[in-house]
Design a protein around this nucleic acid. Structure first.
Lengths: 122, 122
DNA sequence: ACAACCTACAACCATATGGTTGTAGGTTGT
DNA sequence: ACAACCTACAACCATATGGTTGTAGGTTGT
């Protein structure tokens, strides 16, 4: 958290948005399994080459895939580290939830007279 | 995988889309930490009540939060199981990637003459 | 009874998104 | 040299999205 906390949110927005489309998730799966050229990917879907190229661009801008040029081909490859960083965000959310449970447990421990554990954080 | 594979994709679309907005991620964090009424949430953001109410609805439709009625209030609570299920999807993607690495290792083992491990799956 | 409060939703608006076709330019193989 | 191929991007279009204000109806407390 050097200074750009706002940029982290931009990054998270881009990553989750990139994942919020089944075609893009499918592309990501393929390029995580191995490098594929954009036209090789495009052949797999019932839409124009340009549409697939845009999906690849969205994934690339989100940092979920990288491309390298080889002659006339653009070889796309999935970035597993980026996928893991998305996973970390979810793990942090789970940690927040665990905090809630811990707080409730503390309350119960402090007040053994409580009959039912009705949570009401405010 | 009873029969609705297409519905899983719908669900994934909804979940990732719900997470692809910083306000919604923030709301989710809060309601994972503890129940909050919609108006309590709305007070935290610089936008109209209706806008926040819509964000809550998006999260609810995605299954990431649940709401229960208490008098005139609608209490929202984060569903950690749903968050975990999103995490599982990412873990599956990582597994795909691990498959790629395993395949490359096999190739290297089969052909010890390979000088540099240039991957080129096609 | 009634004012204050909370929620839900309709109607509207500007912009983003996912798709299309068309054009241009670099690469490859014969 | 040149046809075939691959990529990139512009221009366009219909729809989705994130925001707004306004209205209506149930709940609460005095």
């Amino acid at each position: 958290m050097t200074h750009g906390d706002h940029q982290d949110e931009d990054r998270a927005d881009a990553m989750f948005h990139a994942l919020a489309d089944r075609t893009r998730r499918d592309i990501l799966r393929r390029v995580l399994a191995g490098e594929h050229s954009v036209s090789a990917l495009a052949a797999s879907y019932d839409m124009s080459f340009a549409a697939v190229q845009k999906h690849v661009a969205v994934l690339e801008r989100a940092g979920l895939i990288t491309k390298r040029r080889t002659g006339r081909e653009a070889l796309a490859s999935g970035d597993v580290e980026a996928v893991r960083s998305v996973g970390s965000m979810l793990t942090e959310l789970e940690a927040v939830w665990r905090g809630r449970i811990a707080r409730i447990d503390d309350l119960i421990a402090q007040d053994p007279a409580s009959s039912h554990p009705t949570e009401r954080t405010e």
